[in-house]
């Protein structure tokens, strides 16, 4: 009997394919793509300011709202934050990635790989929480600053407009540090993968031809690592754009995209504006991905 059924399907591979493909595709088309479409639809509705109800009527006025100076500022601030976080991640990740790819023994490499990915899989909220402990006014950073008698410098820094705040745990600097910490593994892995693919002979050839190590690094290694850097930056950039937890916990009153979206949909029930707002990071990311593809970043994934 089972043989019969098996043979029926064996002779009809297309039926089998359909049976295998249908459930996941249906799920994704309905649940995911469907949701994205409703988001798109919602972004063309608007919230009636008097009744507080969403009016189901095609309009562009929600999108026009995005161009309010205050909203443009939010986009600008978030993009700037994403860019600085990405840059910092590259700078911190590179030595470790380079060490992993070139110098570490196989055992060491396995260990380091685990050391990099483990935080990635440990709880995101808790990792954020740990910085609440570190950056607090009475926390380890202030303690350390007092220990080396540099607490006046920390205070001076916190008084700076733009980056400072009442304490590190309520400042743009705090947001920046936590973002770098949270997304760093996403940068290390692709760079390491890209560097791994650079054949050793290439570096030796460069040395042979008379390049100093610094020249080799700049003219051979860096260009070859570049696709990895771009791949990593896709993650750090995209994740920073869409996060609201960190700005919520470490920020003051200045909004970031994620926090704005959360606030609009939550407290004010303005889902159309939240949806339209989300188009911002989507468009920024699409542009970013197109550029990244041009630069060959997808070969390093």
């Amino acid at each position: 009997m089972l043989n019969r059924i098996s043979t029926y399907f064996y002779l009809r591979p297309k039926v089998v394919l359909a049976l295998m493909l249908l459930p996941p595709m249906l799920w994704f088309l309905v649940v995911y793509i469907g949701s994205l479409i409703t988001m798109l639809i919602n972004s063309f509705f608007y919230l009636d300011g008097f009744t507080g109800k969403v009016i189901h009527e095609f309009t562009l006025r929600t999108y026009i709202k995005l161009f309010d100076p205050i909203n443009l500022q939010i986009f600008g601030r978030t993009t700037l934050m994403a860019a600085s976080v990405t840059l910092a991640c590259i700078i911190i990740a590179f030595p470790l990635s380079y060490f992993m790819a070139r110098f570490a023994s196989q055992r060491m490499k396995t260990f380091l790989y685990l050391a990099v990915t483990l935080p990635l899989w440990s709880s995101y909220v808790v990792r954020v929480y740990s910085w609440k402990l570190i950056l607090a006014q009475e926390g380890i950073i202030s303690w350390f600053a007092r220990l080396i008698h540099l607490d006046w410098l920390l205070q001076l820094y916190l008084n700076l407009p733009g980056v400072g705040g009442p304490s590190l745990s309520i400042s743009a600097t705090g947001i920046f540090i936590v973002f770098v910490y949270i997304w760093l593994p996403y940068m290390i892995i692709p760079i390491q993968t890209a560097l791994e693919r650079v054949p050793k002979s290439l570096l030796e050839a460069s040395g042979d031809l008379g390049a100093t190590p610094a020249q080799t690094f700049r003219t051979v290694l860096l260009p070859l690592a570049f696709p990895g850097v771009v791949a990593g930056s896709i993650f750090t950039f995209s994740l920073t754009l869409g996060d609201f937890i960190v700005p919520q916990l470490f920020g003051n009153s200045s909004f970031y995209i994620g926090k704005a979206v959360l606030t609009y949909q939550g407290t004010s029930g303005n889902i159309p504006l939240a949806a339209a707002f989300t188009m911002g990071p989507i468009i920024i990311m699409i542009v970013y991905l197109l550029i990244a593809r041009r630069l060959g970043a997808f070969d390093a994934l």
Partner: peptide, 25 residues
């Protein structure tokens, strides 16, 4: 590509998209 989208796009996109669907229907 489609399967990785929910993880690759900023979480907030998936979040607000589902929130839109929930509110719309």
């Amino acid at each position: 590509f489609m399967l990785i989208l929910p993880l690759a796009l900023p979480g907030i996109v998936t979040g607000i998209a589902m929130r839109s669907a929930i509110s719309l229907i």
